[in-house]
Write a protein that binds this DNA or RNA. Structure first.
Length: 484
RNA sequence: GGCGGCGUGGCCGAGUGGUUUAGGCAAGGGCCUGCAAAGCCCUGUACAGCGGUUCGAUUCCGCUCGCCGCCUCCA
């Protein structure tokens, strides 16, 4: 069974057949580092991280390149506002991006590339396009001539005629066709610039991705993506540049993520309805945020609201509770998480306790990363596991064995999604000691049947965010809630 | 105006031409508990509307209504 993905250009779900057997090359448009990212930006990157993790889990050797766009009008603007040089802006927001993404459990791409480190390559590419008759100079600018590229519009499914008739494109002086886009912009006073055969200036928005992706991954690499809103013009233009310059196919599979919706409107910087990733992480924690992002599948739009985030938080809490309870029930026989699980496509498939859950998880994720269905398999596993806990605690050998098997599968599946399910940081030694002491007091009250006193202790702790559960093996506690 | 997508029970969100339920959250009932909590069991009879195809459609086709995305910087 192969992995299937929805491919934007073909507008269909197709089998993923990598250019090189056993290897996947993927490229993602990373941030333009001029601002803190919002949860929509973050969700797309988290999903790409998940795609990468899943492909590795399925046995592929993945090379994942991400770019940071660190030359752009917005950066220049921002530098003026903050009164610092553009490099100050980019380094500040690059760090902020990496901090946010790390809080969301993504691991850095195999290779991170910066536009400013590849200006020379871009100049060479632009000259190449001019030489091929696909670009032309107009004053200090260089424009891509879309009418000379056969197939312009094939990714986004639109024709030049459609676009010409649209009244939203403003013709610029010097452009031959209103859709022609800038490859090189001449420098204005006080802007960062680089030398070029056409005079000092800086590259246009799209050229860096064409140049850097093909430099490191070659033409015809496997997966390229970003949010749906990048399909046009960004990816269309990347395609026109790369294929126009090099010939052949640029990208085998275009994979685009659905956008985050805010009250039935997309979240977007231009609409001004953004919620910063940082703020959501602070309120709900990175793991809840990641759960929310992944619980809706890659292509569907995710609804941002307190309700959907609260749902995610409670669902995750259910998993944590299971992990903890199963661990207690099995004591030292409890399996530990491995650092790297692998289920290559070539595997005959799992056997033994919990195998059905692995199978369901795999077939769901193989099917265009249907995470919603994959999560359901984990939830079903948890229910079955919870049923076994009482018996396992009693010492029933059969149930212990089954529970241990299920727990092992649970650890595997949640680790593929990079959920650590760790207890809250408040769970420190001092706090632990104090809570244990209060529980001892409560237990002695209970043994004297002084329930009023016992309940008072429990209520006070609950108010403080410490949940108490009495189990046959004694009371248990944990820090609950969303950390507010 | 052009192109694309969607409309599932209180909310989020999978899926399918027909019999057995996606799953989560919330709600109600029960078990367990000193009482709780956690957990388990049960319950809700949902697929925008109108036609059509079909023995049978939530699932296919058409139309209508509503919503969303792209067409301009945007993940």
């Amino acid at each position: 069974m192969a992995i299937r993905v929805y491919e934007s250009r073909r507008r269909d779900v197709v089998e993923l057949e990598p250019r090189d057997e056993g290897r996947i090359s993927m490229y993602a448009c990373g941030p333009t580092v001029y601002n803190l990212i919002h949860v929509g930006n973050a969700r797309t990157i988290v999903w790409y991280d998940q795609v990468r993790r899943y492909l590795e889990y399925r046995g592929y050797d993945v090379t994942y390149v991400m770019n940071y766009t660190d030359v752009d009008d917005k950066i220049i603007e921002r530098a003026k506002i903050e009164g610092i040089p553009p490099e100050g802006v980019t380094s500040k927001y690059t760090q902020a991006f990496e901090d946010d993404m790390s809080a969301l459990g993504t691991k850095p791409a195999s290779l991170i590339v910066r536009a400013t480190d590849h200006i020379g390559d871009m100049v060479v590419a632009i000259q190449g396009l001019i030489d091929k008759g696909l670009a032309y100079k107009a004053e200090g600018d260089v424009w891509y001539e879309v009418e000379n590229f056969d197939g312009y519009g094939k990714l986004s499914g639109r024709s030049l005629d459609d676009m010409r008739s649209g009244d939203r494109i403003e013709p610029s002086p010097g452009k031959k066709h209103p859709v022609d886009f800038a490859l090189w912009k001449s420098a204005k006073e006080g802007e960062p610039s680089w030398p070029s055969p056409w005079g000092p200036g800086r590259p246009g928005w799209h050229i860096e991705c064409s140049v850097m992706s093909t430099r490191y991954l070659g033409m015809g690499f496997d997966i390229h993506g970003g949010g749906r809103d990048l399909i046009f013009p960004h990816h269309e233009n990347e395609l026109a540049q790369a294929e126009g310059l090099n010939g052949g196919e640029f990208v085998r599979y275009w994979v685009h993520a659905g956008l985050v919706q805010m009250e039935s409107e997309k979240m977007s910087k231009s609409l001004g309805n953004v919620v910063l990733a940082r703020d959501v992480i602070e309120q709900y924690g990175g793991e809840t945020c990641r759960y929310w992002m992944l619980a809706s599948s890659l292509r569907s739009q995710a609804v941002f609201s307190d309700d959907t985030l609260d749902d995610a938080d409670r669902s995750l809490e259910r998993w944590r509770t299971f992990l903890e309870a199963a661990g207690h029930a099995l004591a030292e026989e409890a399996p530990a998480a491995s650092s790297s699980y692998r289920r290559p496509l070539s595997d005959p498939g799992p056997e033994g306790t919990g195998a059905e859950f692995i199978s369901r998880f795999l077939s769901s994720m193989d099917d265009d990363f249907n995470s919603a269905k994959a999560f359901a398999a984990i939830h079903d596993l948890v229910r079955e596991g919870n049923r076994l806990i009482e018996g396992a605690q009693r010492g029933d050998e059969g149930e212990r064995k089954s529970l241990a098997g299920l727990l092992e599968v649970f650890l595997e599946l949640t680790s593929v999604l990079n959920f650590r399910l760790e207890s809250k940081p408040e769970d420190s030694k001092l706090v632990g000691g104090l809570v244990e002491y209060l529980l001892e007091l409560r237990e002695s009250a209970r043994s004297e049947r002084a329930f009023e006193r016992a309940d008072e202790i429990r209520e006070r702790l609950t108010e403080l965010g410490v949940a108490i559960e009495d189990t046959p093996a004694g009371p248990r506690w944990r820090v609950s809630g969303t950390g507010q």
